[in-house]
């Protein structure tokens, strides 16, 4: 275990050193906050979280899974609380309850007459309530606040490693299963007709989503991670009509939001999670107004030209 820990922190130190080379190229006013060790770690975490959330957000937006992302992120809370009680690493508990809730949603949807939106609302509020009740018994309210809203400035090494691992897994899975995932998102009936196991793809994608949410907990928190799973993808959808460029743009939007939000929160002394999401929202608004093909300005102009 100590060998693994040593390897892990060595890996992070190496990545931080690499990252600081990049930061060194920036103008001094931008680079200045990163003289602090905690800001370096926060920067690395933000880049990773922004990137993975951005990557997944394209699938979430195209698959119309926004509410499901919301549900899983809330369902993670009781897992965190139970893991805390049992002395486990919190992400294991989070992963278990997140996955259980998504399975529960699927089961209600399939076997009762309750529709999916009600199934999701029901399951995730129940899980969330359970989490709140447990946490109110065992932990301080600041602890709860950190879980709910994130605290990227105080990221632990274990959380940073988890985020890194989640990022590597997400990229690998999406690369290796790119075609099944694309086809399942685009046209599940076709995927089925070609003999793909769409149940496997479905739950694989949900597990990937859960992993991403768990990995983002400490940075943006349970409540706001949903924004990072929707806004970058929605922004990218406005900017391109191709799938791979959409993935790339969403990742960039995620990373830029996370880094810019981090800097804003440092300079203005405001909550980092909120700042990150607000930057992402600002980028979305910018795309909404000025996107080359699907933006409001272009549409207005086209309507004028048509008259």
């Amino acid at each position: 275990m100590s060998l693994l820990e040593g390897l892990g922190s060595g890996l992070i130190d190496a990545l931080l050193a690499l990252l600081m080379h990049g930061v060194g190229l920036l103008p001094a006013s931008l680079a200045e906050p990163f003289e602090y060790r905690f800001m370096q770690r926060a920067l690395l975490t933000s880049i990773l979280v922004g990137g993975i959330c951005g990557l997944l957000s394209s699938f979430v937006v195209l698959k119309r899974w926004s509410l499901l992302g919301d549900a899983i992120s809330h369902a993670v809370l009781p897992g965190v609380a139970i893991a805390y009680l049992l002395g486990w690493p919190f992400f294991i508990g989070a992963f278990i309850t997140g996955a259980l809730t998504s399975l529960g949603i699927g089961a209600i949807e399939r076997h009762t007459r309750i529709k999916s939106d009600a199934a999701m609302g029901l399951m995730f509020t129940a899980a969330f309530a359970l989490g709140i009740v447990i946490i109110s018994q065992i932990a301080s309210s600041t602890h709860l606040m950190h879980i709910l809203f994130g605290n990227v400035l105080g990221v632990q090494t274990s959380a940073l490693l988890l985020t890194l691992l989640a990022g590597v897994i997400a990229v690998l899975v999406i690369w290796l299963a790119f075609r099944p995932l694309l086809l399942y998102t685009f046209d599940p009936q076709q995927a089925q007709a070609l003999g793909f196991n769409i149940t496997l793809i479905h739950y694989g994608l949900i597990l990937l989503l859960t992993l991403t949410i768990v990995a983002s907990l400490e940075t943006v928190g349970i409540i706001l991670v949903v924004a990072m799973l929707i806004t970058p993808g929605a922004t990218a959808h406005l900017l391109t009509d191709r799938f791979k460029p959409m993935l790339v743009i969403a990742v960039l939007v995620g990373i830029v939001s996370a880094v810019a939000g981090l800097l804003l929160s440092f300079h203005l002394d405001v909550a980092s999670g909120g700042a990150i999401v607000l930057v992402a929202t600002a980028l979305f608004c910018l795309a909404l107004i000025a996107a080359p093909k699907h933006g409001l300005l272009v549409r207005l102009w086209q309507r004028r030209a048509a008259e």
């Binding site: 195209l62 075609r179 009936q189 799938f243």
Partner: peptide
């Protein structure tokens, strides 16, 4: 299999060539 037209997601960000390519997946 060719489904009914309404069952396809025409907003999806893929080109004609990419769509036809999914037949080869």
């Amino acid at each position: 299999y060719m489904p009914q037209q309404e069952q396809m997601e025409w907003d999806f960000p893929v080109s004609v060539q990419e769509t036809v390519m999914t037949g080869r997946y």
